[in-house]
Amino acid sequence: MNLFAYTIIAGIMYGVFFGLVGLGLNIIFGVMRMINLAHGDVIMLGSFLAYWLYELLGFNPLLVVPVAVAVFFLVGFPLYYALVPRLLRSKDPEMLSFILFFGVSQVIEAVIIFAFGNNQRSIPFNVFGSAGFDIFGQRFPIAWLVTTLVALAAFGFIYWYLQHTRMGYATRAVMANRDEAMISGIDVNRISAVVFCMGLALASIAGIFSFFIIGASYPSMGPELTTVSFAIIVLGSLGNPLGTILGGLIYGVAIMFMQSYFSSWANILPYVLLIAVMLFKPEGLIGKAARSA
């Protein structure tokens, strides 16, 4: 019974974090209808940024968050304007962007290996203090609580942005229908660029805290995270950012139960979930979207 309660609570915290892992991918998909195949590598970049600032300047991971946001807005804008408008004019933007971001992912991985070598890196758990905290009689590391709160804050921010700002309103219009939004005078390119940067920044924030949930970071961790993220956003609902948290929760709780009770099969779970949802409920568990041939 103890183990059962522990598994559920751990699964929820794990799941909220994995919601954050998928959030950046989903928001970019929602606005641009492109799958950022370098998503996992951006997460990896975030974790290396955090590691580097921690080792060099002793930065607390929480302090790295604004740095990451600044960095990815600075990098994201030029990257967007260099790549995306050109792609959108091509004959098959969806497929070509998929391949293009795959190229970007390879470049990121190679560059990071040049810069940091191949060793794995981690930030110690006790950077937020070594005390634990209790929920319903179960003890968890404080780093998990911090991570969960950061993830919830990110979701809160996206909710506020979409529902309560002018730009968020325009963003929702672009998500609903890109062409109509353009006709009604919205600067679609600018919105897309901002959302693109936001997506990268969210991914990097997930990376900063990945040490405490996923474990040590290494340069080639990206592709697997991209696949897991995709599974999560398909589970939640493609193109609906706030739905991502549902996907994350399902994934988190399910994987914790697998680990507790069928540990040797746990790694197959995200893939099976992904295929099953795509085949039987391609619109996601709560959404509409998703095309099929």
């Binding site: 696949t227 893939y271 992904l274 295929i275 795509m278 085949l279 041939a293």
Partner: peptide
């Protein structure tokens, strides 16, 4: 899986190959 289009097919197929890998390696 051929019911899915474009990138969805690509990712679902990727997931399928990984699932097969984990089954074989279990």
């Amino acid at each position: 899986l051929l019911r899915l289009s474009g990138a969805y097919f690509a990712i679902a197929n990727l997931a399928a190959s990984q699932a097969l890998y984990f089954v074989v390696a279990n």
